[in-house]
């Protein structure tokens, strides 16, 4: 559905010289510097997939989204979404997509939400029946009915985002671009929006590209992640695979009835040489090991056989930790 090949965007920025003398010199001759915001990115996203597009601030996420939505003109490379070039075939392309920029609004600030929706109905020529049906469906999932008569400027951030999503989806687009849709929202609103996205992805088979800094969004919604850093693609593949490859350590924590004796610990270490066992507090024992080295079940079974275990908890490497590792350069070769 979305095909991107060697996509590049170069911005020319001008470096200011320092001080008064420098500022005067800037008046006459400027020094320009080229900034490669997006640098030769390629990927392919099939129909109906939700892909997470992540990277640090300034990595080039938003620039990519703006090229995909036909707002920015790519310096080089090509984009084909549903077979159309977003920039050149803009008019035919735009009815096929929905866009939400978390920090902006596409609703009309001084009009009631309902007015904005009916304007969108006219702009996209949505038949009355479809319009009613979709609005009703979005109300069921997002509960927007309560503030349809409120002017947009009086909505809370969470209410506004629900309306933005509705606005982006009223014309039943085939592709939905979400640039930080959960930014600044409270947990309740975030959960509602994630549920909504899952629902519409399932019901309408809409293809979604999502950028976010909230990795919980990614974990909940995306099986596929694309990570970019300084304009370049550093990872493209399954979220699970990413977690597995970077691993991080799995940590099992056991609360024991009796404190383990040193010889028992020694025996454990001999049985599982790949794991580290720590006995920081007398009644707790933690086992840490790389996830691919051992099966959790094995360790747990051994522990249950040897000790009286009262409680057990385990921590998987968080996606945050994994992504931090990627940013730090932990992933050498990009997979695909």
């Amino acid at each position: 559905m979305i095909k991107v090949a060697a996509l590049t965007k170069v911005f020319k920025t001008f470096d200011r010289r320092e001080g008064l003398a420098g500022a005067v010199r800037d008046l006459f001759s400027r020094r320009y510097r080229e900034m490669r915001a997006v640098d030769g990115i390629s990927f392919h996203i099939p129909k109906g997939e939700i892909a997470g597009y992540i990277g640090a601030n300034g990595a080039g996420k938003s620039t990519t989204i703006k090229m995909l939505t036909g707002i920015l003109h790519p310096t080089s490379g090509s984009i084909a979404v549903a077979g159309l070039d977003p920039f050149r075939e803009r008019q035919r392309y735009l009815p096929n997509i929905g866009v939400v920029f978390g920090q902006r609004t596409q609703l009309w600030w001084d009009l009631a939400v309902q007015e904005s929706f009916s304007l969108l109905q006219r702009i996209y020529r949505i038949p009355e029946q479809d319009f009613r049906r979709r609005l009703q469906r979005f109300d069921e999932v997002l509960g927007i009915g309560a503030f349809l008569r409120t002017p947009v400027r009086k909505l809370s951030l969470g209410q506004k985002m629900r309306c933005e999503l509705t606005a982006a989806l009223l014309h039943a687009p085939r592709v939905l671009y979400l640039d930080e849709p959960t930014i600044g929202l409270d947990i309740e609103a975030k959960v509602a929006i994630r549920e909504f996205l899952k629902t519409i992805n399932r019901e309408q088979e809409v293809t979604v590209i999502l950028t976010t800094h909230d990795l919980k969004d990614i974990e909940e919604l995306c099986r596929r992640v694309i990570i970019i850093d300084r304009g370049q693609l550093v990872y493209d593949g399954a979220l699970l695979e990413l977690r597995r490859r970077l691993g991080g350590e799995l940590e099992l924590k056991f609360h024991l009835k009796d404190a383990p004796r040193p010889e028992e610990l020694e025996a454990l270490r001999r049985t599982f040489p790949a794991a580290r066992f720590a006995n920081a507090e007398s009644h707790t024992l933690t086992a840490s090991f790389p996830q691919e080295a051992l099966a959790k079940g094995e360790v747990i079974r051994a522990m249950l056989e040897r000790f009286e275990v009262r409680d057990l908890s385990f921590e998987e490497p968080s996606i945050e930790e994994v992504v931090r590792q990627v940013y730090r350069g932990g992933l050498v070769a990009a997979g695909s």
Binding site: T69, I71, Q91, L94, I97, T105, I123
Partner: peptide, 13 residues
């Protein structure tokens, strides 16, 4: 302000 982005996603010139 960058709000121009929101005008450019409308399906009209």
């Amino acid at each position: 302000s960058g709000e121009l982005a929101m005008e450019l996603i409308r399906p009209a010139a």
